[in-house]
Nucleic acid binder design. Sequence first.
DNA 1: GATATTACCTGACTTATATCAGGTAACTTG
DNA 2: CAAGTTACCTGATATAAGTCAGGTAATATC
Lengths: 291, 291
Amino acid sequence: MLDNIARLRRFNRAVTREVGALDHSYLGRGRPLGAVRVLQLITRRGTDIAHIRAKLTLDSGLLSRLLRALEAEHLIHITTDPTDRRRRTAQLTPAGAAEMAAYDAIGYAKATETLARAGNRQQALLDAMDLIATTLLRDQLEIRDADPNDPAAIACLQSYYDLLLEKIDGLTPNMLTLPLSDPDNYRAPHGAFLIAFSDDFPIGTVSLRPLEATIAEVKRLWVAPHAQGQGLARRLMQAIESRAKSVGYIHLKLDSNESLTEALTLYRRDGWSDIPAYTSFPATHWLGKTL
Amino acid sequence: MLDNIARLRRFNRAVTREVGALDHSYLGRGRPLGAVRVLQLITRRGTDIAHIRAKLTLDSGLLSRLLRALEAEHLIHITTDPTDRRRRTAQLTPAGAAEMAAYDAIGYAKATETLARAGNRQQALLDAMDLIATTLLRDQLEIRDADPNDPAAIACLQSYYDLLLEKIDGLTPNMLTLPLSDPDNYRAPHGAFLIAFSDDFPIGTVSLRPLEATIAEVKRLWVAPHAQGQGLARRLMQAIESRAKSVGYIHLKLDSNESLTEALTLYRRDGWSDIPAYTSFPATHWLGKTL
DNA sequence: GATATTACCTGACTTATATCAGGTAACTTG
DNA sequence: CAAGTTACCTGATATAAGTCAGGTAATATC
């Protein structure tokens, strides 16, 4: 155990240096780090000041001063909320957006440098980073509705298809459409497309489409490799089942392939049972559940 | 590529929070972080002030003040170097050592908490952390001589044995001795035990022992999984070969097992060629090289 | 032995970050 | 509608952290 702690501390040292370098680069534009962090939270469409304060746990006095400084630089524009005139909203001005783009460029350059340093281990490095980020940000996991044509949805589907192509013999890319040919099936009120986000990164998905008036089909359950082992698949299934129930469905169906053993185990453990085949290749197993 | 950058930034955010929490905990003992960092570098046996300044890249004025503050708290004791009376050396007092132990306990608690949060993914998390630390600290890699009974050496051998037991059928723990039964064979002047350290963590080893006047044997080449793919094995082999040459050996031998394919490929690519068998199980391949 | 360099110190100053007490306008609630 | 709460602002104050100009021994170099 002591050894593990030592490993973790070595990691902290390594990463402190790296993060410190990034922090320092933010200081290269004549603005304190605190101001930059505030600026990063402000969007073109406007961000509530209270939201910034909560997110960064800043003293109201401090935040007030930082905002004033940013306003004096014409980077942001503060307006009063019409519905509650005590509330204020900060908006990025065009100059502010340009400044953020400059910070972005710095961050991009730093990130590129770090990746380049990894040489031929880039992919391994990124995978390791995903795993750590997902584990440490575990408490920030959020399952949200998304449109099937949303970029995050497309990214999830792409990863899901990659997994299928790797696992299922005989499956070819032309059998998988991207974007989906029937997006409306996955939109409210009769369908759903759920995505699990960790710090705004898609790390899992599941969707629902109508079959008959009281029957819907659960489709495309996927969890990113670095997020596996945390019960996310089960949470996604619970979310989609309760959604189906609230929409009014009574029966659920799904198809799967024998290669997807973990998924099949999960379904069976959660009350799904075998039903007659209702689709063809690549499906080899068909399951149903009554809500 | 842009996507990779986004992944890296998410990692940065996750880790900044974690490291920030650790930093913050250091402030909980009524001492600024800068002072703590200085204190951490000071040992009971004494640390050169110039060394501290170089390591932390501190202004001489700032460091001077921090040291004075620590001295006023009776945590350190500053003496003048007798050989060069401009130089000064800071030593930890018993009170200072006690204070450092308290900081250690804080770090230990924080680390334990982080690991606990990882739940059943602790091992995966630690492996990912090792990979990242080794990659980011790549420039701090150092190959040093060690004693075969040194704790770092024992740790390397243990890992090496674990690898062998996993890869070679028929091998049992009782065939592998730890610590080595013939440590003197691996000590200067006729032998050597090299360890590759990354930020003082052992991540690879190789050793040399005498066979005859002009012939030596290369033994136990091992590289930690998270350090593979960076050419470390080759660097270790080059180091041990040049050591053998400088000691006066002309011929080198080694034995290996067919399961250790990467190692065999490396040897052959670096000028080693097959020789008659000179050992028995678990060896299946025997190679030699003339310096 | 004069001159330069090194190692460290001192004091003045700046900036970033943080905290606190008090104030005002807007909104909520009994 | 009076009293309390909320959202934000202002000004005072503190501390941490870093920079800079100058100073003093001790040592190195020609």
